[in-house]
Design a protein around this nucleic acid. Structure first.
Ligand SMILES: NC(=O)c1ccc[n+]([C@@H]2O[C@H](COP(=O)([O-])OP(=O)(O)OC[C@H]3O[C@@H](n4cnc5c(N)ncnc54)[C@H](O)[C@@H]3O)[C@@H](O)[C@H]2O)c1
Ligand SMILES: NC(=O)c1ccc[n+]([C@@H]2O[C@H](COP(=O)([O-])OP(=O)(O)OC[C@H]3O[C@@H](n4cnc5c(N)ncnc54)[C@H](O)[C@@H]3O)[C@@H](O)[C@H]2O)c1
Lengths: 252, 252
DNA sequence: CCATCTTTGTGCACGCGTTCACAAAGACAT
DNA sequence: ATGTCTTTGTGAACGCGTGCACAAAGATGG
C-alpha cells in the first residue's frame, strides 16, 4: 500500500467501509473502459476480473452503494459509472493546488489524468522566487506568499505536497490553516494534522523497500545471511524455521 | 493507500505479517533520523510518536523481528537500524530499471532518495527511438529493444513501470519474462502477473478520488444531493440514515 | 541486596475485511 | 404460465490487524 490514511481511524462514513471506498475508483476505471466500448451490461464476475478482485467482494462492495444489479443479467454499466462517480464526489469539480514544483511537482502538473475526472489544477505554488510567474504545464507558478490567498479565492480543499521532506510539515500547516482539509503527501515524512483533516501519502521509497523485503524472501531462504555483518549481529539468521533465533546481544 | 499488493494473498513470509512489513520502512526512517542526531536509545513511545503509530503496535511489530529492547530503557537505535535494514533486505544492493522515461519517469530518475538506501538505478528504458542515448539524470536512456539484455546483464529483479497505461501490461510481460519478479507500477492499470511476482501500484488518481470521497462527506451531509442529475437517478440519496434508500430503477 | 520505577513483550478481546456458499430474484424460452 | 438457467445479494465463518492492559524484566538508587 503506497497508501495509508493518517488520523480518523476508519470512521466508516455513512456505512461504506474504507476498504470499499478504496476499491471504488478501481471499479470506476474498469467501468469507464467498458462504457467507452459501449458495453451495456457486465456481470460481477467479468468486472471483478477486470478490476483484479474477487467477485463476491465486488458484489458486497456494490451492495453498500445500494446495489443496482439485475439477477441473471448483471450491472448496467452507464448507471454504475454514474452511481460510483456520485458516491466518490466526482460529479463536482475539485480545485487542487500543488505545492513544490520541482521534478515531481512539474510531472504532476503535466499529468493529464488529473483533469480527466473531476480534478482541476487551480494553482501551482513554489517557494523559489525565481520560479514565480514561470508557466509549468500552461499554469504560471505562484509564490508561497500567495498560498493563503490562493486557497481562499479558489475554495481549494485538496492540496498536494511535493516539496522536500523538510518543508512538508510547515507547508501542511499553512494549507490546513488556510482551509485545506485533504492532503496528498509525496514527501517522505509523517504529517501531523488536526482532526478532520485527511492525509494520504504516496511514498516511493516505502514501496521499494516492501518489494525488496519480498524479493529477499524469494531469493534467500537458503543462501541468505552472511552478507555484510557490521560487527553488530553475532550469528544473524541461520533461518531455522519460524521464529528463528536471534542474537540476544546488543552492540554499543 | 496508494499501495496494494496484487496476487500472493498475504503469504505472511516467515511469520512477519504484511502489515508489519509495510511499517518497517517507516520505523527505519524515524530511526535513521535519530541515528543522525546521535540519539543512542529510544523508547517505543517516542519512536511510535515519530512514526505516527500506536506504541503497542510498534512493540508487537518489533517482537516479530525477535525484538531487542531493554525493559526500563528502550531500544538501541543503531542496532534497530541494522536489524530492520537487514530484514528488509537493504544491506544488499538492488539494481532497478525504470521503463518509460516521460514526465514521471524522468522525475523518478532524478529522485535522490532512490540511491540512498540500497536501490540503484541500473538503467532507463524507453520506446521512443529519439530518446535513445540521451542522458537523463546522468544515465543514458536505452531503447526497449535492449530490455531483456539489460535485465539479464545487470541481474535486475525490480522494475518500475512509468509508461502510459496502454503499454504497461506489455512492458510488464516482457519484464517478467526477462526475470523481473517485483514490479512497481505507476500506470493506472491492473497488471496481470504469474504467481511469484509481486506488484505494487502507486496510483495518484485513486488517491485523489478517495480524498474526494471523504471531502464530500465532510462538506455535504446536509446540503448534499441535487447536484447535476443526468436523468439517470430519480430521487437520489435523501440521506435518511444508514442504508438509505436508493432508486430501484435502471436507465436505458 | 532490596525497593522502586520505567518500559518491554504479549495475552486477550474485539472489529473489520474477505471469502464461501447458497437462496432468491429475475430473464428468457417454450 | 411454467420451468430452467444465470447471476445477484448476503448470511455466516474465519483470519488478520489493532489496541488495551498487565505481568515480568531489568535498570537505577539507596
Ligand atoms: N522526484 C521523485 O520521483 C520523487 C519520488 C518520490 C518522492 N519524492 C519526494 O517528493 C518531493 C519533491 O521531490 P522533487 O524531486 O520534485 O524535489 P525538487 O527538489 O526537484 O523539488 C522541490 C521543490 O519544492 C520547492 N520548495 C521547497 N521548499 C518549499 C516550500 N517551503 N514551499 C513551497 N515550495 C517549496 C523547491 O523550490 C522545489 O522547486 C520530495 O520530498 C521527494 O522526496 C520525489
Ligand atoms: N506524470 C504524473 O505525475 C503521473 C502521475 C500519476 C500517474 N502517472 C502515470 O505514469 C505514466 C507515465 O506518465 P507520464 O506523465 O510520464 O507520461 P509521458 O507520456 O510523459 O511518458 C511516457 C513515456 O513512456 C514511453 N513509452 C511509451 N510506450 C512505451 C513502451 N512500450 N515501452 C517503453 N516506454 C514506452 C514514452 O516514450 C514516454 O517517454 C502514465 O501511465 C501516467 O498515467 C503519471
Amino acid at each position: 500500500m503506497a497508501t495509508g490514511r493518517t488520523h480518523r481511524p476508519a470512521t466508516r462514513s455513512r456505512g461504506i467501509p474504507e476498504a470499499t471506498v478504496a476499491r471504488l475508483p478501481l471499479y470506476l476505471r474498469a467501468l469507464t473502459a467498458l462504457s467507452e466500448r459501449s458495453v451495456p451490461t457486465v456481470s460481477s464476475e467479468e468486472l471483478a476480473a477486470a478490476a483484479g478482485v474477487n467477485s463476491a467482494k465486488l458484489r458486497k462492495d456494490f451492495s453498500y452503494l445500494g446495489s443496482y444489479g439485475t439477477r441473471g443479467v448483471g450491472y448496467d454499466v452507464e448507471y454504475l459509472v454514474y452511481q460510483i462517480s456520485r458516491e466518490l464526489g466526482l460529479t463536482q469539480d475539485w480545485p487542487v493546488v500543488i505545492v513544490g514544483i520541482g521534478n515531481l511537482g512539474a510531472a504532476l502538473a503535466n499529468y493529464g489524468g488529473f483533469a480527466s475526472r473531476g480534478f482541476r489544477v487551480a494553482a501551482l505554488i513554489d517557494a523559489d522566487p525565481g520560479m514565480a510567474g514561470k508557466p509549468v504545464a500552461g499554469i504560471p507558478v505562484q509564490h508561497t506568499d500567495e498560498l493563503e490567498k490562493i486557497i481562499q479565492d479558489n475554495g481549494v480543499s485538496i492540496g498536494v505536497i511535493a516539496t522536500p521532506a523538510g518543508a512538508a510539515q510547515q507547508v501542511c500547516d499553512r494549507l490546513v490553516a488556510a482551509g485545506v482539509t485533504s492532503i496528498l503527501n509525496f514527501a517522505p515524512t509523517v504529517l501531523n494534522v488536526p482532526d478532520g483533516v485527511d492525509v494520504r501519502k504516496v511514498d516511493l521509497s516505502i514501496e521499494l523497500q516492501i518489494l525488496a523485503f519480498h524479493e529477499q524472501r524469494k531469493a534467500g531462504e537458503e543462501a541468505a545471511a552472511e552478507a555484510a555483518v557490521p560487527a553488530a549481529a553475532r550469528k544473524a539468521s541461520t533461518d531455522q524455521g519460524p521464529d528463528g533465533d536471534v542474537p540476544a546481544v546488543m552492540p554499543a
